[in-house]
């Protein structure tokens, strides 16, 4: 099977104008404006095959979104080549655009003052979707995303989550073969996040579409992607299996404690290494396999008001990849 997305030594620079602070600074930059080329993506190559779900991770400004925008044809590469389904994306051929979709946060493709149904009908016509296909897909999407109650309300009256679900439905009505999802769950509550995840996974299974998604939430990536690409500072620093990445780089979960009474860090470090301690809040690092056990021991021993188990923030996982000093070591050093 051959790759449907090929990215070959992609580089993308942005032109940014330098602004100095203050009125005089504004005046100087008005007279002679300094521009700086900021590389957003530096020499990134990868291939993605049909049916794959690939998680695209990296801190803010790492170049994730830029890469997705190049692959979807919104941006011209500064150098390097992209091939998607045999097309050069930035030529934006109609047949190419009909085979992909891109969901970007709350970017509006829904008309604000009209109902989602109105916008969907327009999409149907623009993408030449036959009535039969349209009805079938809309039916499926409505059921899976539970859209029935919102389909005929003006978009401006919908909640953030409802709008996101409608954006997603609108982006999939033409049955794209490739989905570029940029932060598809941002701003959604946990239930909604799960619904979107289930939906994407199911769409992938049913249609064999390839999915590339970026997310701030580790859980999104864990639930969906077997393969992850990690990008940092514009460079690809990891391409491989997610479980390998997690086992290697984020073996711990974060136990967040809200204490009822002050407790010394020493008393907590008996259970697991203390990552952070501030007043009545503490964060401990517990190995994945032992989280539940450690948590129950803590609950028995320590006056805890509240407890939460969370993933390591992606920034930290990625930070480790890049051999930055992970916070835990910094804490240990400070403790010495």
């Amino acid at each position: 099977m051959s790759a449907i997305i090929q990215l070959d030594h992609l580089c993308k620079d942005y032109e940014v104008h330098q602004k100095e602070p203050g009125l005089m600074g504004s005046l100087r930059s008005f007279v002679r404006r300094k521009y700086q080329l900021v590389p957003a993506v530096k020499d990134v190559s990868f291939e993605i095959e049909q049916g794959e779900i690939v998680g695209f991770l990296g801190p803010n400004g790492a170049g994730k979104t830029t890469t997705l925008k190049v692959l979807s044809g919104l941006l011209y590469p500064t150098s390097g080549h992209a091939r998607v389904l045999g097309f050069t994306p930035h030529e934006r051929k109609a047949d190419f655009l009909k085979s992909i979709t891109m969901v970007m946060g709350q970017k509006q493709q829904l008309a604000w003052d009209m109902t989602p149904s109105d916008s969907f009908l327009v999409n149907q016509a623009i993408y030449d979707v036959s009535d039969a296909d349209f009805r079938r897909r809309l039916g499926e999407l409505t059921e899976m995303l539970e859209l029935q109650p919102v389909l005929n309300k003006p978009v401006r009256k919908l909640s953030l989550g409802e709008r996101m679900k409608c954006e997603l439905a609108g982006a999939l009505l033409h049955g794209p073969k490739i989905l570029f999802l940029d932060e598809p769950t941002i701003g959604l509550d946990v239930n909604m996040q799960q619904a979107v995840r289930r939906f994407v996974a199911d769409y992938n299974v049913r249609t064999g579409a390839a999915v590339m998604l970026t997310s701030h939430y580790m859980a999104d990536v864990e639930a969906l992607a077997e393969r992850v690409l990690v990008i940092d500072g514009g460079q690809l620093v990891f391409d491989g299996n997610l479980s390998a990445l997690v086992a290697e780089r984020a073996p711990n979960k974060v136990l967040k404690l809200q204490l009822a009474h002050p407790v010394s860090p020493e008393r907590l470090s008996v259970f697991a290494p203390v990552r952070m301690m501030e007043g009545l809040t503490a964060e401990l690092l517990a190995p994945r396999g032992k989280v539940a056990e450690i948590a129950s021991r803590i609950l028995n021993d320590v006056p805890v008001a509240d407890i939460a188990i969370e993933d390591m923030p992606i920034e930290e996982v990625v930070g480790r990849l890049f051999q930055r000093k992970p916070p835990i070591e910094a804490v240990r050093e400070a403790a010495k």
């Binding site: 003052d113 109105d118 009908l121 327009v122 016509a125 623009i126 030449d128």
Partner: peptide
């Protein structure tokens, strides 16, 4: 170029929007 059907759909949409701001 969009199909006639697409044009009609877009016109209907924008006509609807404009009516709200009559």
């Amino acid at each position: 170029m969009p199909s006639l059907k697409a044009l009609r759909a877009m016109l209907a949409l924008h006509y609807g929007i404009s009516l709200q701001y009559r």
